[in-house]
Design a binder for these strands. Sequence first.
DNA 1: GTCTATATAGCGATAGAC
DNA 2: GTCTATCGCTATATAGAC
Lengths: 224, 224
Amino acid sequence: MRNAVRARNGAPDEARMNTLVAPTPEAGSKPAQILEAAGALFLENGYGAVSMDAVAKRANVSKATLYAHFGSKDELFRAMMARECATLLTASTWEEARSLPIADGLRLVGERFVTFVTSPKALAGHRVILGEAHRFPELSRAFFEAGPAHTIRLFTGIMQEAQRRDELSITDPALAAEQFLALIKANMHMKLLLCVTERPTQEEIRHYVNAAVELFVKGYAPAG
Amino acid sequence: MRNAVRARNGAPDEARMNTLVAPTPEAGSKPAQILEAAGALFLENGYGAVSMDAVAKRANVSKATLYAHFGSKDELFRAMMARECATLLTASTWEEARSLPIADGLRLVGERFVTFVTSPKALAGHRVILGEAHRFPELSRAFFEAGPAHTIRLFTGIMQEAQRRDELSITDPALAAEQFLALIKANMHMKLLLCVTERPTQEEIRHYVNAAVELFVKGYAPAG
DNA sequence: GTCTATATAGCGATAGAC
DNA sequence: GTCTATCGCTATATAGAC
């Protein structure tokens, strides 16, 4: 897609920074096996605690084969994160929310969003990225662009739409989007990242999201 | 469950779970030097990327001396985290907020809280803990209790007070506290954890907090 | 391309002198 | 208590046969 070559004129940020796009190897091939093993192990245990031996063993591949496809542990980690982000962040159909009243739309996409970010895989990826943010700053940036920043842009659109329809009185749609996302994640996300609580049920998620929507819609209700 | 010995009567959670309390060695002593070096290195680079040699070298101490005071790398890491949490989380005077109108009180403690969690040390600690949450689950729990959970309890008190005074209409004070904390951190905290932005200025913090307080107070305004 | 076997280095942890 | 020197192990990465 847009790799390495594309940084010429004033290309928009969306196009320039997402360096997490990587070709997906054909299913069943050795590279695919390796990436799958790396994904399972790195996400479970973090970068430092996983050896190349362990990856090779889990992938049913020799270490030499592993190094033939991925030149180093760093490279393997990057490729694995790119693949995980690609599979996790398939843009859902946010459009359907646009046709609903704002509160219902927020409830719909909010619940979907929280369900996603509280999934074990998303949490594991989040944890690993955060733990290695210092060592892999570009990866961290790319993750942010592909993940949180992307989501904020989507919700910013929803906020602008709601304001255009006079359903909400918003002066800074991007800030409002961030606030809403923060509200629905609230403390639950942190607790999950720290492994101090179990995965919430769909009912619990709905309860959190409903409370957040209520607060948000009332807080941004148009005057009069 | 967790400490094996202490789970008898209905002791409050606060007393049972905070295993991060550790004696502070006298300043200038070797243990103090070691802990300081460990703090700098672990917080900067994470657990796996720091060797005991590196800690010893930075502390101007031999590795044998290091092992004489801290039996293993795990133990050193725990002691270091305990010390960092102790120095960072000195309970400020939240009481002063109680005498103010709710919006002013929230602005005051909110700004202080955000200033704290966006400090480089707090961020580094947060990052390391998150990255190693799998490997050190008890440590993670203890951190959560000493940090986020403690803060939520404090803010829950503020919410209850506000409701008693009919300044806010809150049905679930703990949830409201979580919501407020999430709102004022919003996306800024995530961006900082991912190293995709610089430390915010006090003006930026104030701006975020003001926006959050406005939304929160309006959203929980008593009817009528 | 893929394997077995190995090189080389750095790790956590320890022994023994002082 | 503190040091120097070193053990034993495992890590990343590579050489060479097939």
